[in-house]
């Protein structure tokens, strides 16, 4: 395994940073590898746009920042417009179609999961990020589904584990229906 890079971008309140932490923790603690998470800071990180990036490897990480993401989770139109260009053709993009209207000419087309809508149907919109992460590990091998699920369970508030596990399964099943679990290209 080389270096895998993931970027998660949206706006404040969508659980973007928590999602990154769950992925990073899954990779380094539950998959017993290495990961480095960075995020944007400052006035632009207060309620506005929000990005978090995780580099994952099976050996200690030198360069801590994402250079060529293999996976992107894009949760706002602004983030889509910002990160759409310059992507490698192998990069896997995941969007919430209720939040992002992708360019029809984009190839390959992004994978879509209406996580916000699904979360609302489950009863709590805050678990949209957990649904998306379930989807992520169904459609890519960035971290193992077991590691990710463990990481979710230790990252969410006490008492909400069951609900979050359900959210994870919801996204995971939806992902499996999409077909093949693809390998994340090296960064």
């Amino acid at each position: 395994m080389g270096i895998k890079e993931i970027r998660i971008a949206g706006f404040g309140g969508q659980g973007v940073v928590l999602s990154g932490q769950i992925v990073g923790q899954a990779a380094s603690i539950y998959d017993d590898g290495f990961s480095t998470l960075t995020q944007n800071y400052g006035p632009e990180a207060r309620g506005g746009s929000c990005t978090t990036e995780v580099v994952i490897s099976d050996e200690p990480i030198g360069y801590p920042y994402v250079q060529n993401p293999g996976v992107l989770i894009i949760l706002s139109q602004e983030a889509y417009d910002k990160y759409r260009n310059g992507l490698s053709s192998e990069a896997l993009m995941i969007i919430d179609p209720d939040m992002v209207k992708p360019d029809p000419s984009q190839t390959p087309a992004p994978l879509a999961i209406p996580a916000t809508r699904m979360a609302r149907e489950l009863g709590r919109v805050v678990v949209a990020n957990i649904i998306t992460l379930g989807f992520l590990v169904a459609v890519s091998d960035i971290v193992s589904p077991e590691a990710l699920k463990n990481s979710v369970l230790t990252s969410v508030p006490k008492g909400t584990e069951e609900f979050n596990a359900k959210a994870f399964e919801t996204g995971y099943s939806y992902g499996l229906e999409q077909g093949k679990r693809s390998e994340v290209p090296d960064g």
């Binding site: 990073g24 380094s28 603690i29 480095t36 801590p64």
Partner: peptide, 9 residues
Amino acid sequence: EAVGHMSEK
């Protein structure tokens, strides 16, 4: 800042 803000194991 890089080391302070990055998360790792």
